[in-house]
């Protein structure tokens, strides 16, 4: 195999317009000039990186969708949905709520979730940056299905 395609020379640093940076970010790269000395060049995006990031988000979105289905069919509590939506995992949520992982796992079941005190619900709501009412109301989750 030969490796001839890619050189990070200062005028060849990729600037792919199709990126995920929302115009907020032009990362700094180190690239060489004609003599091989280094200079700094900004880049707005490079396709392989964008592809890899989109792929990672696809996985997240798929998990959120599965969680949503479970919640609206009554197989799981909204805790599962918001956990996935915030890309968290059980130990992380347990850390925020200040309890053990297995307790959080229990709270992901509707039976236990429905028995939670206002105080505990507030902790979950704070963790997911929503209000208690939003946490309890699963109607909006059903609507997303139709759209």
């Amino acid at each position: 195999m030969s490796y001839t395609i890619i050189h990070m020379q200062q005028d060849e640093v990729p600037q792919d317009k199709k990126n995920l940076n929302e115009g907020k970010l032009a990362k700094l790269y180190y690239a060489t000039d004609a003599k091989g000395h280094y200079t700094k060049v900004n880049s707005i995006g490079w396709e392989p990186e964008t592809v890899a990031m989109e792929q990672a988000w696809d996985v997240v979105h798929a998990e959120v969708e599965t969680a949503r289905q479970k919640v609206i069919t009554g197989k799981a509590s909204p805790v599962l949905y918001y956990l996935k939506k915030n890309i968290m995992n059980v130990p992380m949520v347990a850390g925020y709520v200040g309890t053990f992982s297995f307790i959080v796992r229990l709270h992901m079941r509707p039976y236990f979730f429905n028995k939670l005190s206002r105080k505990t619900l507030e902790k979950y709501a704070y963790t997911f940056r929503i209000s208690v009412e939003e946490l309890l109301d699963i109607e909006p989750l059903k609507k997303k299905h139709e759209s």
Binding site: L20, N21, E22, K24, L25, M53, A56, W57, I87, M88, M92
Partner: peptide, 10 residues
């Protein structure tokens, strides 16, 4: 929140 959403993992 000043970073692009796509970068904001934990």
């Amino acid at each position: 929140d000043y970073l692009p959403a796509a970068y904001r993992f934990h």
